[in-house]
Write a protein that binds this DNA or RNA. Structure first.
Lengths: 149, 149
DNA sequence: ATAGGAATTGTATCATTGTATGATTGTACT
DNA sequence: AGTACAATCATACAATGATACAATTCCTAT
């Protein structure tokens, strides 16, 4: 099950952004980016809480909201899984949100470091483009493991 | 957590100096004197307010200002902690590396989402600038090091 | 194979923490 | 007195934490 999933979540306790929102955003991003696929099991609320050094209720809150948003399926006593058949129009939606959240966080993080948006655009152009590795993917709905029915 | 921290704060209500300023000064002094070390948890706003017999909003005000000054880190629902502050001569170094890492991660994440660097520059210009909140100095510390557990 | 209890999972509820906003108080200056 | 402003207080709220609970799975003794 995504052994060290926790390491892929990066919290900024000083950003002022609630922890549960940061978790929601990043899970959505990973889903939109294809790192999390339908059927994948997420860590238990307690396991992830332990890794992130946060109360497990905070994880549970993030999971509950993602569940209501139709991204994941939480099942008492069983675990939480990425939904098998997310509404197709939601995927593009989530993708947009993910990009926006990513940009927003990039901006605020950079601002905290004292870098202006203008400098950032320069940096972006200067930076070696790494599109090659991840460019094209399509949300694949394969049906292997099947948590819910 | 600094059991009787309140006893180390001495208020002079007749001095004409605002209470919140007296608290700020004394916390800064204790930090400079090494009595308060990075990672130390300060009393809650209510606990300290009780000890000092003042309104807890006054404590909150002092904490907020110390937070903006980069001395402490206040986290809703968690508590307030003395910040880890990087040595001044390292700041520039760290800052540079941090910005680069930030940019690199932004690019790869975005690429994973199927967004081209050209689009990103547009997004950056379009995005609502939130620089206001991120003030003047550069904390640059990672989160796991300080407050909790 | 199966009944039953332990272990593991998410849930519900309330306590504790800092935050936001506006009212009240006090002080200085006309 | 009246006005203006800063400091403090009161109240409601949002985020996180602690604890007890319910649903499911897993394992073991029979």
């Amino acid at each position: 099950m995504n052994k060290n999933f926790g390491e892929t979540i990066h919290l900024d306790l000083r950003s002022g952004v609630p922890i549960y929102l940061q978790i929601i955003e990043q899970i959505k991003q990973q889903f939109a980016a294809g790192k999390l696929k339908p059927g994948d099991q997420l860590p238990t609320v307690r396991a992830l809480a332990l890794e992130l050094r946060v109360n497990f209720n905070t994880i549970a809150r993030a999971y509950r909201i993602l569940d209501e948003a139709g991204v994941i399926s939480t099942q008492q006593g069983r675990g939480t899984y990425i939904l098998e058949m997310p509404p197709p129009e939601m995927i593009e939606n989530i993708r947009h949100e993910a990009v926006e959240a990513l940009t927003q966080r990039y901006l605020t993080d950079a601002a905290r470091l004292g870098v202006s948006p203008e400098e950032l655009t320069k940096l972006l152009r200067a930076a070696p483009t790494r599109q090659d590795q991840a460019a094209d993917w399509q949300p694949v709905m394969d049906d292997n493991s099947n948590p819910d029915h």
